[in-house]
Design a protein around this nucleic acid. Structure first.
Lengths: 190, 190
DNA sequence: GTCTATAAAGAGATAGAC
DNA sequence: GTCTATCTCTTTATAGAC
């Protein structure tokens, strides 16, 4: 693989593990097995590298979500598939964690992909829920946008609870919790 | 106020704004208006100061939650009061954000207060929900523990969405979303 | 493209005077 | 208790040779 790709891969891992503030150019180079001069030849500095890494991660996250949400089944079944997909729960969400990085939030260029990813995800889930409601699978009174926000929030908050507890259990319980609440909105015979 | 208290207050602010990794002893001293020697006289170092600061913040957070959850009203009313209480949404949760700090999670002494705070909160909410169910306010099939996890997760995830968006709006929508779902479990005439 | 040298600034303390 | 001096390592680059 090219040095450039190795650097992006290394940056993606470190941003996930230690965040933007906790990741140094030096650590990125060492993990990538690439020298200092090479890094500054391909990228103008830490923000530039982070931008490339975040963009790549956001793209993959979106594709992974789309695969579950565009699959077969009812709205609730597709959302269940998305929520219960295999995850490395204790590592958390590689995009959501950037939200706690003051230097990412302060830099519009770095924050944009984070903002766009969650905006897309909320819209996509709201679309699935609206579809389910219009098909009669879900109660007519269900608010697709608010419910979609709650579903995404449960995921992101589930990671927080799991990391606090040092265990994936609260994540699973939180997911069970929303799905249980959502089931009460399902129309019989849908 | 004593130098010791000033240092704790300064550390609490900085941990909230920049996290553990992003906070230096030097920054703590400067914000507190306290010299280097003084800081190392009162505290053994950064971890020691952080421990004192986190403990104080956890205590306050717990008291604020207890005030709403032990108030009057039905289970859903008390949970609504807790979720809708005034918050500086874009600042996020001062305890939840520590969950993204690798050095906090790696240090058992620093992680303990974070773990205990969320464990207490989940239990407390589960208790309120179980009470509501037993009083007939909520459907008998509602799972108090899973639902409590989902409610706490919505809060923590709501902060994530708000910071990503640069706006408090998604937080409010996520809260509306869970409360809407919870309303479907409310027993008529409760 | 990649390497090594250099460097100003900050992180995170320790030592000892006052 | 608080202050200043000192110290080692890391951060985040830039410069110029190969």
């Amino acid at each position: 693989m090219s040095a450039s790709e190795d650097l992006i891969a290394s940056t993606r891992e470190l941003l996930w593990e230690r965040g933007y503030v906790g990741t140094s150019p030096r650590a990125i180079q060492q993990r990538a097995g690439v020298g200092q001069g090479s890094m500054y030849h391909h990228f103008s500095g830490k923000p530039d590298l982070a931008l490339a890494a975040i963009g790549r991660t956001a793209e993959e996250m979106r594709a992974a979500a789309e695969a579950r949400l565009s699959g077969p089944g009812t709205a609730v079944e597709r959302i269940t598939a998305y929520l219960r997909r295999e995850r490395d729960v204790l590592k958390g969400c590689p995009i959501g964690r950037l939200t706690q990085d003051p230097d990412v939030i302060a830099d519009p260029a770095l924050r944009r992909p984070v903002e766009e990813t969650f905006a897309w995800l909320r819209d996509r889930l709201a679309g699935v829920l609206a579809e389910g409601r219009d098909r009669g699978e879900l109660a007519a009174g269900l608010d697709p946008v608010a419910t979609a926000c709650a579903v995404v929030a449960v995921l992101q908050g589930g990671y927080v609870l799991a990391r606090a507890a040092g265990s994936a259990e609260p994540f699973g319980q939180a997911v069970d919790g929303v799905l249980g609440l959502l089931a009460a909105h399902a129309r019989p015979g849908a």
